Amino acid sequence: MEVAELVPTDLDTLKDHIVRRYDDLSPRLQQVADFAMAQPMLVAVETMVTIAEQANVPLSTLSRFSNAMGFSGFSSMQAVFRDHYFNRPRDYKERVRKARNEAEFGPDSAAAIFHDFGAANIEAMEQLQITVSPQKLDRAVSLLEGAETIYIQGMRRAYPVAFYLWYALMKSNNNVVLIDDNGGMLSPLTRLMGERDVLVTFTFSPYAPETTDVIDLAYQKKVPIIAITDNQMMEQGNKMDVCFEVQEGDNLGFRSLSCSVYLAQTLAVSLMCQDSV
């Protein structure tokens, strides 16, 4: 007998729910899913009429989408979005603004850029703290703990975070492999991956084709995949066993890696704590 899936009670779980069911939704319902994933704040604060207008769907489609996600109606689904944003810390901008006003430096000075990067990273990390659910963290650590070998992969901008996680886990009792293409070793390193292992991948837009290939290979081999990415609705999002969506701080077109490193540290130290029990 099929076990009924629990109704999501937090936004992180609901987003996972949407990604898993996305391919089975009608085009109209996918339209609502796209809007909800791209504009969660608007879903939290706007009226049903406004949301329907901005998503360019009839009111009834919002109700059908809510039902498809397991809710009794749109208001009960919207409550999940509202709970998420009503608990969001809101005083960081005022603190940074005050610091900049009290200091005498130009808008393009190193001090101004320093404060702007700090503000962007503080906002991103505070957002991440209220976005990631404890259940998802526990699931990721459980997969890592049960793996015979942990494969870690990230290319280009994501490579420093992948390398950091590999370095951190080298201190644990786990078998850890950093997948990179140095010396043409990408294929030999991935050839031995199996379903008793786990792949941790870091991938950000524009997504590196090397990472896309590794994810596809792991999925074909039934290797559990833990992903840290900037868009859970990416093309391969439904192949992930655990997917952490991070929105990094951005200043002058330069995106940070603070949130990704924060998650990598959390996973590494949590796994080490499990190993010591």
Rank of each mutant, 00 (worst) to 15 (best):
N67A: 04
N67C: 07
A68G: 00
A68E: 03
M69Y: 03
M69D: 02
M69V: 00
M69W: 01
G70C: 03
F71N: 00
S72N: 00
G73D: 08
S75G: 05
S76I: 01
S76Y: 09
M77V: 01
M77H: 00
M77T: 01
A79V: 00
F81P: 00
F81Y: 05
R82V: 03
H84N: 09
Y85Q: 06
Y85M: 02
Y85S: 10
F86C: 08
F86Y: 14
F86T: 11
N87G: 11
N87D: 14
R88I: 10
R88Y: 13
R88W: 12
R88Q: 11
P89K: 06
P89L: 06
R90D: 13
R90S: 13
R90K: 10
K93E: 15
K93D: 12
E94Q: 12
E94V: 10
E94I: 10
E94Y: 14
R95I: 07
R95F: 11
V96A: 15
K98M: 12
A99S: 15
R100F: 10
N101V: 07
E102H: 08
A103C: 09
A103Q: 08
A103K: 09
E104C: 10
E104W: 12
E104H: 09
F105K: 13
F105Y: 08
G106V: 03
G106F: 07
P107Y: 09
P107D: 05
D108P: 07
S109L: 12
S109W: 08
A110I: 12
A111C: 01
A111Y: 11
A111H: 04
A111W: 09
A112I: 02
A112T: 00
I113Q: 14
F114V: 08
F114S: 12
F114K: 05
H115D: 13
D116W: 12
D116A: 14
D116H: 15
D116K: 10
G118C: 03
A120Y: 01
N121L: 06
I122E: 04
I122V: 04
I122F: 11
A124T: 07
A124I: 07
M125L: 14
M125N: 15
E126T: 07
E126K: 13
